[in-house]
Design a protein around this nucleic acid. Structure first.
Lengths: 146, 146
DNA sequence: CAATATAGGACTAGTTTAGTCCAAGTTAGT
DNA sequence: ACTAACTTGGACTAAACTAGTCCTATATTG
C-alpha cells in the first residue's frame, strides 16, 4: 500500500480541526476534540510549529493557531511537515543511485511524483473542512500519455 | 514522506527488466541483471505470479515471463500486487472509522486517492522502459477545485 | 535419475514509527 | 512575587512492520 504515515494523517486532522475558527487552541483541547492522546497531539503541534504552519502562544491561556488562512495551507505542506518530502521513490531526489545508468524508470517516477505532489498542493485546508469533495476531472490524465 | 515500499520499487524494477523481451528469465538471471539478492528477487517474482502479472515455467530451463504485453500492465497493478491496495489513508476503504461523524476529511482523501490511483494506472510498463518520460498535463487539476 | 528451476511458507534481524515522559521556559492572573 | 496553565525540546520505550533469508517440496529437462 502506498501509504501515508499515521502522523501525517493526524496532522491533517489537527489542522482541519483548527481551521474551523481562528481561535487559540490548547493541545489538550485539540486532544479532547479529536480523541487523540495529549502527548501525541502535542508532538504533532510542535512539528507543525517548526514548519511554520501553526503559530504558538506560550504561557497560560496560550495554545496554537493556524499561521495562515486555511485556504492558503495545502495538504501537501502538512504531509511534508510531518513526513518530509513527498516522493514515491528514494531515487527521485538528488541522491545518486548506483545503478542509475540501467535505471530507465527514474524519470518516469519523477513524473508520477509530480502528479501526486500537484494533486496534494491543490487541496487546501479550507476544502478539507467541507464534507463534500470537489469533483475531480481526471480526463486530462487519460488523454495524455500518463 | 509519502512512500512506496522497497518491495514495490523492486517489483517495478523486476517487471521493467522483463519487459525488454518476451524471453523466459530465471530468478538468478534477473538477480544478476538488477543487482538484487536472489532470494529477494525470487520472493518478488512469486508475489507477481500470484497476482497473474507474471507467468512461471517450472523445472529446468524454467523461469518467469510477463503474463501480458508490457503496454497492458500498469504500474498501479504492480504496486497493488506488492503492497496491496493503493490508498493514502486507512479510512478510505470499507473499514468504518469510529469518529466518522466528525471526520469531514474522509471524502476529500478519497478524492486524492482517486487521483493518485488514476495517475498510476495511466503509466504502463512499456512507458517505463523508455528513458524519457511522457509530458504530464496537470493543468486540469488546477482548474478544478482539487 | 540427476540437475535445475519454481512454490510455498516459516523464520529472523533490523528499522521505523507511534507514543510516552520529563525538565525547562513563558505568560496571565492574583 | 507567586502560582497555575501552557508550550518547548529532547530523550526514551514499546510495538509494528519490512526486508531479507532459508528450508522443504514439486516440476521439468536431458
Amino acid at each position: 500500500m502506498l501509504r501515508l504515515s499515521k502522523m501525517a494523517d493526524y496532522g491533517t486532522q489537527v489542522m482541519t480541526y483548527m481551521a474551523r475558527d481562528q481561535a487559540v487552541h490548547s493541545a489538550s483541547e485539540v486532544s479532547a476534540g479529536l480523541g487523540i492522546a495529549v502527548p501525541t497531539v502535542s508532538k504533532i503541534l510542535k512539528m507543525l510549529v517548526r514548519k511554520n504552519l501553526v503559530a504558538s502562544v506560550m504561557g497560560a491561556k496560550g495554545g496554537y493557531m493556524l499561521a495562515r488562512h486555511p485556504a492558503e495551507i495545502s495538504v501537501a505542506e502538512i504531509i511534508d511537515a510531518m513526513d518530509g518530502p513527498i516522493s514515491i521513490t528514494e531515487c527521485s531526489g538528488t541522491t545518486t543511485c548506483e545503478r542509475e545508468s540501467t535505471c530507465s524508470t527514474r524519470s518516469n517516477w519523477q513524473g508520477i511524483n509530480h502528479i501526486i505532489q500537484d494533486a496534494l498542493e491543490k487541496v487546501n485546508l479550507a476544502g478539507m473542512t467541507q464534507p463534500k469533495p470537489q469533483v475531480v476531472d481526471t480526463s486530462a490524465l487519460r488523454t495524455r500519455g500518463i
